[in-house]
Design a protein around this nucleic acid. Structure first.
Lengths: 341, 341
DNA sequence: GCGGTCGTCCAAATCGTTTTAAATTTCCCA
DNA sequence: TGGGAAATTTAAAACGATTTGGACGACCGC
């Protein structure tokens, strides 16, 4: 069913019908209502591609997915989808062609010039992320999920990684721990740097020297959690507490601790960052895991919302949101055991 | 840069340029080459929306994402993305409006009539899935990831869930286990039924009666894995082996076993299905987890491939792929302990 | 009853391509 | 050298909507 045909059935011109459906004021309330009703009855829906061509809008938001298929991804997308459900806007997922390098910027260029999307969301930025400058230069609206230190104006939404890790570390210090190991995210990413900063600040406040041998960087996988934790535990004196970057990391840490015949929550304290997944919950771990918590799904929903604001004209420089992170104490954290002192 | 402008710069007509770029035979090799080179040099790319309007093709494949944001999702999508990287085809993610019910079919209708996608992939089908009949009726090409028993012709790609679980169960029986519990997927879904069938067949072959108290259904979460496993272990006599539906489920099972003071691989054997995630590997669990294994990423890549075949005219009735599943034995499975007999 | 305003509605241009149908050029052979 | 087939190229008509610039009455005040 095309507009022309539909209009004829109504005895109206295509113009009027189009306006009625788009909510323009030049059409009487009576006919608007009639048009709306008939559209439903006859099942008329404007052809998306025609609308896109003529308006120049793509009706889609692009999300670039890393090669490694992070487990966090679907949770964030669920959130976005939740928010975009009511709008007539799609989510477009683009794979990254090659890790880092030139191909990545090519992907963004193509995304921008092809007119496939109206805006892009980028993840895991670095302090001087080249993508940000690129997208700005291309004139493509974008939101950064995370933060960067570039001068290029850009909208962003981030959680307070520094504060979260600072509080987590401080809490462990309060409990008497002095050798606290941290398994951080990939080196060079802003959030990893922020977490590092939070960790150091907490130590600094107590006048405890920073020991680089207690910090590791890498993907959030159970394997790295396990390996790093083991290598930390082999040190002497060994750490008595861990700050783990993710739930998966924490799984590895738990295993590593057990493999040394130690008990989490008694011999070794663990705090991890939790993005709140329906399929893996900190409460259910044994012992239950203390976490710094922030809903990734909520971040996804809000991201979609902010992109919509961006598209409707709100200046990117106004869009900066820093979310606080909760610290949830459970059984995996406890006072420094006497013997270890 | 528009086609008209670009053509003028080349001293050719838009028609010729369009044909040269689309690889039609009516243009001489010499000009084709020149056009291609200049297109790169001047950065001309056809406007996607104009192409879509005139060709009627959307240039996108739709994937419907469940509300619950399954952790498997991004791995499958990564696979799809991998395959579609070379094509000029997008992946469109649609959230499901409401769980089940009427809204779901509305979503598919809209997806089909709006011209947003050329094909759709549906997941976790049921034996008489309404979506299949609906999409068929709407004339929208689609691929079912999983299987169904409907008469409606449809393309599908599935793994041999029945065979996998049958082999897993048989292996446990070989080891002497007699009370084997199974934590299956959500009730009513085809793959759950297939797994159930595989489980029963294995028992039947040994003449062991099926005990419904040893089977549970639900989402693949660590929480359900833990709860179900605990409730099974409370039975008397308790099961000596578990078949777990997913890696997350297995995590819960491991915890439950430990919470009873039992040891996986010695007191209790566990086999789980593994979709092969980079962030959670069976090899790294302690003890390492025996699995039925099938790469979800590969399935995603192949799905994209099959959809492309579908779109280029291959009949849906020809597209049926059943993938075998590997059985990988590791430390979590062992002979029935003497004391338990 | 006339000119102006307002509220509705419409004809036609437009978006940037692909593709049909026709026009041109090239080429080969009688 | 001319005729016709084959190889190139082109002009113009789609595709299905939005939107610009008017047109047509109805209504009001003077």
């Amino acid at each position: 069913m095309k507009l022309k045909e539909f209009a004829k059935q109504l005895g109206l011109s295509p113009t009027t019908v189009s306006r009625a459906l788009s909510g323009y004021p030049e059409v009487s309330e009576k006919t608007r209502k009639r048009v709306a009703e008939e559209a439903v009855r006859l099942g008329y829906r404007p052809n998306v591609n025609a609308v896109r061509l003529v308006t120049g809008r793509a009706g889609a938001i692009g999300v670039v997915m890393g090669r490694s298929g992070e487990f966090q991804f679907s949770e964030y997308m669920s959130g976005m989808a939740e928010r975009l459900d009511s709008e007539d806007i799609d989510i477009l997922v683009s794979p990254i062609a090659e890790q880092g390098g030139k191909d990545e910027s090519q992907l963004y260029s193509r995304l921008a010039t092809s007119g496939r999307v109206d805006a892009v969301i980028i993840h895991s930025p670095m302090p001087d992320d080249k993508r940000i400058a690129l997208l700005h230069r291309l004139g493509m609206p974008f939101l950064v999920h995370g933060r960067s230190e570039t001068d290029v104006p850009h909208a962003w939404l981030d959680i307070d990684n520094e504060g979260a890790i600072r509080r987590a570390t401080s809490h462990l210090l309060d409990l008497g721990h002095r050798r606290i190991a941290m398994i951080n995210g990939r080196a060079g990413l802003t959030f990893s740097l922020h977490r590092d900063k939070g960790y150091r600040k907490a130590l600094e406040q107590r006048g405890i020297p920073f020991d680089p041998r207690l910090v590791a960087h890498g993907h959030f996988t159970d394997e790295l959690g396990f390996r790093f934790a083991r290598s930390f535990l082999e040190q002497s004196p060994r750490p008595t507490a861990f700050v783990a970057g993710s739930m998966m990391t924490a799984l590895g840490v738990y295993r590593a601790v057990r493999s040394f015949g130690l008990v989490v929550g008694r011999d070794i304290s663990v705090i991890a960052h939790d993005d709140v997944f329906p399929y893996l919950t900190a409460d259910n771990m044994v012992p239950s895991l203390s976490t710094t918590r922030s809903s990734l799904r909520a971040a996804g929903a809000r991201s979609a919302d902010l992109v919509l604001q961006l598209l409707s004209g709100r200046p990117a420089t106004e869009i900066h949101e820093l979310w606080p992170v909760e610290l949830i104490l459970r059984e995996s954290t406890g006072p420094l055991p006497q013997a270890s002192e």
